[in-house]
Design a protein around this nucleic acid. Structure first.
Lengths: 231, 231
DNA sequence: TATTTATGGTACTGCTCAGTACCATCATTG
DNA sequence: CAATGATGGTACTGAGCAGTACCATAAATA
């Protein structure tokens, strides 16, 4: 029951089967993936393309070229560009945010805890990959404040809370003295970020050497602890 | 000598003279501005449109609609979109950067100097207008690292240098004790920024109340000064 | 093996927008 | 006041890209 009343119903197709499989995630053949697999492939391609280039969602063409599948796949899997964007941002958040907070709060020594926190922060967010992800999230925030909000809450927001609770504990032990631990936590995080984060995001500065990181964190921890020490 | 061999040479023009003057900077008539004036009008329109909406360069259509003139004007005045972008970013930098540093370094008292610096920083950059300008500059940085670099150098970079020199002076007077004033300045700036700046840029937080600003700055200055006080 | 179903592929549509051509008109200058 | 030059206005062009229609084909199922 083919209704060929369409103008170009019988148009010649460019048979692209020759070498059209640009998908590098699939082992050379791998045609016809099923639902979940195709979704993963598309999402992974979108993510890697974004992260490689440090730019927000690439064009659908570019994604398909890398992942295989077709425009149609994107619409069935994600419902369109916006859905893909949502999934992509969630994916990126899921990669970067846990790395930000793992192991925080294990140290009993305050200085060690602060140093660990800062190191985690700097090495996760200021690495090449972390910066590219930051850039993607920032660019996206100009499009969707909602996604930015959720990212912030799960990332820096959560970090600030964790740090504040660490400070509360230290204050309870009498190691530090401050009115407002949340405020102090905010200050510490800012201090760790310094101007470096901005410089990295703006691509003004190359990735930091270990020595630079240590010096910066050392200075921040010193100033912070001395600033809060009990009289 | 009109060569009417063009297909639409004699096409009907929509006479738009009825009320086509959307230019608000011009007093209702003001047709046919000359060179410099048109340039200013275009640039101002581009700037206000960007700043109002917190988004990078608007479409040429939008600019023209507000400024008057025509696409042609933009090409004769700026050489195209890229030239306009350059001029726009320079314009924005020229507005925001001087405000950032004026009056810094006048105070003899270190605490007063730090507080003034921080206040200038927060009230300039975290105001609605300042945040919108920051957003524009960030978005542009994803397009042109060169412009981002120059902005950073003139803004935060310059600020860090100023602050470092203030700290040097204080150290010479024996008021503070630190190995590296540049590092310490970096820390202070970061502390002032805290998470607030990011929250504002991402539009997660509304403009700060005076009380919030004072509390935040107060905490930062306290921690910083105590952290650097001589043993 | 034949039929159905879902997925891959391609072209088309429509929109936005930068850049360009060219006409119309105002302003200047002799 | 007429000729000339510069500026305003409009439409056209072409590129990029999201979304959609529909054909082709591989997999599933009977």
């Amino acid at each position: 029951m083919r209704h060929d009343n369409r103008p170009d119903a019988g148009r010649a197709r460019k048979s692209k089967n020759e070498s059209g499989q640009t998908a590098e995630s699939a082992p050379s053949k791998a045609r016809r993936l099923k639902h979940g697999e195709r979704r993963d492939a598309l999402l992974r391609a979108a993510k890697e393309l974004s992260v490689e280039r440090g730019f927000a969602v690439p064009s659908l063409e570019a994604i398909i070229e890398r992942a295989g599948g077709s425009r149609r796949s994107i619409y069935t899997e994600f419902g369109g560009k916006e859905g893909l964007r949502n999934a992509l941002l969630a994916e990126i958040s899921d990669e970067i945010l846990p790395a930000l907070h793992t192991g925080i709060g294990q140290d009993t020594d305050l200085r060690a805890a602060l140093t660990r926190f800062a190191h985690k922060f700097v090495s996760t967010l200021m690495s090449e990959r972390g910066i590219n992800m930051s850039r993607i999230i920032m660019q996206d925030s100009f499009v969707s404040p909602a996604r930015a909000k959720s990212f912030f809450a799960r990332g820096p927001g959560e970090g600030a809370k964790l740090l504040a609770s660490i400070l509360e504990a230290a204050r309870a032990r009498g190691e530090i003295e401050t009115k407002d631990c949340a405020l102090a936590a905010n200050c510490f995080i800012g201090m760790v970020r310094g101007n470096l984060y901005l410089e990295r995001v703006l691509r003004i500065r190359p990735p930091l050497a270990e020595a630079e990181i240590d010096a910066h964190i050392g200075a921040a921890v010193d100033i912070f602890l001395d600033g809060l020490r009990p009289r």
